[in-house]
Every structure is written in structure tokens, then in C-alpha cells.
Design a protein around this nucleic acid. Structure first.
Lengths: 219, 219
DNA sequence: AGCGAATGTTACTGACCGGTAACTTACGCT
DNA sequence: AGCGTAAGTTACCGGTCAGTAACATTCGCT
């Protein structure tokens, strides 16, 4: 942004706290996701979002019909981003479902151990948004169901004895890993043993080690 | 003015929506715990609590210095109740740590599967109360740390190879079980496979079955 | 230059929030 | 009976919330 203001006008859109490049709507969206995740959805008002995005409430309501709609849209973006990371994690190990599961754990743990991690945004939203009619509920429910489905499918592809039980067990570990992060700092919590727990379960459910040059032909 | 009031006196403490027996303070406390757990802490105002307890806001503030103090006290009561259930669960199996761990899972699962279950009140509070100075934080942190300590200790008592890793893994399963309950109804979620997952981990970490029934094929 | 869309600015509404003041009523105890 | 105390009642405070109205400004484009 050029700085050609001769008037003492109050800082056009110079340096907002969060990303100053894109359109107002994008800045608001990005700021909202950040604040919602960091401070909680109910704790953040639209004023704080607009201000954090370097704009004001009116511009907020020109871009979003309501706060609830913004929340739902943020959750959708979170889901999309999550699947992106999921797919990127498992892509290098196509054909090796066991390794793919481990990669998902590695990715989740790495993300959860970060300094700025505050648990799973979707799970947190499920706690904060209890009104049954909130538009975000469907997003959360569909997302969690899909996580479960994929884990069970990976367990089946890996040839687990009882793939659904294994998939569910892995999901419990994953969910536990993110939620405990809210109470235990960094990697000091039980999250530190999440991957080894997953490996132990995999060892227990998968038939043969086949560790030597595994070239199994799965889907 | 003995008859100044046209209506009969407004039912001293007859039938409030929540437990009508005890003193006002107790009714408020009980109502608050229920509402906080069911609707969320931030979603419930002191007016709603007082009204739900069949009294009014002034009586609320005669019993509690502030809403935050009430919240912290509710969390403490939740912790006490939890340890009560924990101790009651493991008492019948003194001297059999493995069976005690299973009993804790059974108890937690049974509680989480209930129609009215909304996850772990302490974990939920950790999500809702993000301000670092909230008096409830210490309660939550101490509680979770103690859960971890006890599980690790039980794992050690059971003779696990790496007792800390096993204890952490069990904690992740437990935390995952309660948190997924917020998204999956009743026992339809991965929570249904929580106990079998715990047993699988126990089998993997504990040395000899030492049980007559166990007929293991793979090791 | 001029037009229109996007954005900034200010002020406002109505509801709710946590918390308090002042007063009144009812009950228990001695 | 009389007193202290627990409790009900009403009104209020200052602040914040989501959301809107009316107007001013800037910018991109032709």
C-alpha cells in the first residue's frame, strides 16, 4: 500500500494485525479463524474480529450475514485444510496403509505440539456450540464421521483383524492427543506417547510383520 | 402489613426446577453444575442459574462472590465426584491393577454413554475458559495431571514393560472417549471400542497373561 | 474526469451480561 | 415477644454483544 496520505486521516488500512494483503473479506476471515482458535468462538466478538483485521464492524457485515455464518464457514475451511494435510501426509506412502496411519499420527502430533496449538478447532467448536441449530454442527459431525470412516478404511486396507475396532481405537488416540494439548504444555503431556501407542495397536491388530521389503498390493 | 400482599406468598422454597430440599446455596450450586455441563459455562448466565434454582440473582451473589468463583467451585466438586467414582470402580479389584484399569474404562464408558452425557466437564471447561488467570485453570490442570499420574502408577503396578507409555496411551483413550461423545450420539461412536482398545494395549504391555482364560497366539 | 463499487466512520438499537443497592418478607431461635 | 438472619423483590449500573442506518471516503476502471 502506498503511503500518500497528506491528511491526518486515521491510517487507511496500513498495518492490520493479521495479513494486510487481500480483500477485506479475506482478512476478516483469516483473523476470525485465528481468534476463534486461539481465544474461543464465544469469547471473540465481531468487533474484535473486524478490528483485528484492520477494518470495522460495518465491513464485517457487508461480507458476512452473521457471526454464526462466519463461524460455520471458518469450520468448513478448517475441515478443508485438515484433509489437505491428511492427504499430503499419506501421499508418500501410497500402498502402505500401515505407514500411512503412522504418518497421520506423526502429522497430528507435530501440529499439536506446536507452541500455538490449542487442540482441535472442530472439537473445541463442538464444546462451545451447544445450541442444536447452529450451522456449524453439521460441519463438525460430518468431519468427525469422515475421520472415523477413513481410519477404519485404512485399518481394513492394512489387513487388520478387526478393522473397525482398530480404526476406532486409533481415532480415540488421535482425539485424545489433541484434547489433552489444551491442558498439558507442548509435548509434555500424554500426547508424547501417542505414536508409540498407535504402533502398539497396529502391531496387535495387523497379521504378519512383513517388515522386510513390504510390497503388498493393496488398493 | 399482614395482608397487604394479595397473592399468597410465592412458595418459599417449594418446587424449583432443580432439587428443592437444601438451602439456596446448595440449590444454586446444583443447578449451576447441571447448566454448565449441559449448555456450557459461557452460555449460562447467573440469572439463568438463579432462576433455575428457584431464586434470584441477589441470592446468588449472597452465596457466591462471583460467577468465576462459582465455576471454579463447580469444577472442584466435579473433580471430587470423579475421584469418588474412580475409587469406587477400582476398590473391588484391589491387588489386581490390570483389572482395575479395565474397571476405570468400564466406568468411564458407562458414564459417557448415558443419554445426558456431554463429554468431560473438566475438558470442556478447558476449552471454554481460555483466559490464563481464570481460577478454574488450576483445578483442571491438577486434575488431568493426577489422572495421568494414577494411570501411569496403575500401569507400573501391573508390571508393564514401559509403564509411563502405557499409562499415557490409556489416558489418550480415556480422553478420546469422552470428547468424541460430544459428536457421536450415545454409544454409536468410537467410544464403543474404547474398552477393547485398552485391553489390547494391556495385552501388549503386560508381560505374562497369568490368566487361565487367555489363549494368545501371537506375541 | 467521472462513475460506481468497495470500504471507512460514526452513531445507534435492543438485548444481555456480571454485579450492586436498598428495601421487604419470612423464618428460627432464645 | 423480639431479634438476627436468610431470603425475596425491584431497580439499577456500566459494559459488551450482535446487528443496522446513514453518510463519507477511497479506489479501480473506463
Amino acid at each position: 500500500m502506498s503511503e500518500g496520505k497528506s491528511r491526518s486521516s486515521p491510517v487507511p488500512a496500513a498495518a492490520p494485525e493479521c495479513g494486510g494483503g487481500g480483500r477485506v473479506r479475506d482478512r476478516i476471515f483469516k483473523t476470525a479463524r485465528e481468534l476463534f482458535y486461539r481465544q474461543g468462538i464465544r469469547a471473540v466478538g465481531v468487533d474484535a474480529i473486524a478490528c483485528g483485521a484492520g477494518t470495522n464492524k460495518m465491513s464485517f457485515y457487508r461480507s458476512f450475514p452473521s457471526k454464526d455464518d462466519l463461524v460455520a464457514e471458518c469450520l468448513k475451511a478448517q475441515v478443508a485444510e485438515y484433509w489437505e494435510r491428511w492427504n499430503a501426509s499419506i501421499a508418500p506412502y501410497a500402498g502402505n496403509p500401515r505407514r500411512q496411519i503412522e504418518a497421520i499420527f506423526e502429522s497430528t502430533i507435530a501440529k499439536s505440539c506446536g507452541e500455538d496449538a490449542c487442540g482441535c478447532p472442530l472439537s473445541n467448536a463442538a464444546v462451545e456450540l451447544r445450541e442444536a441449530e447452529h450451522p456449524g454442527h453439521e460441519v463438525i459431525r460430518d468431519y468427525k464421521a469422515e475421520v472415523r470412516r477413513r481410519l477404519r478404511q485404512l485399518a481394513a486396507e492394512a489387513g487388520a483383524r478387526e478393522s473397525d475396532a482398530l480404526g476406532d481405537a486409533l481415532m480415540l488416540l488421535l482425539e485424545g492427543s489433541t484434547v489433552t494439548r489444551l491442558t498439558f504444555a507442548g509435548h509434555s503431556g500424554p500426547l508424547a506417547n501417542s505414536l508409540v501407542a498407535a504402533r502398539t495397536l497396529l502391531d496387535a491388530y495387523l497379521p504378519a510383520p512383513a517388515k522386510k521389503r513390504a510390497a503388498k498390493g493393496a488398493a
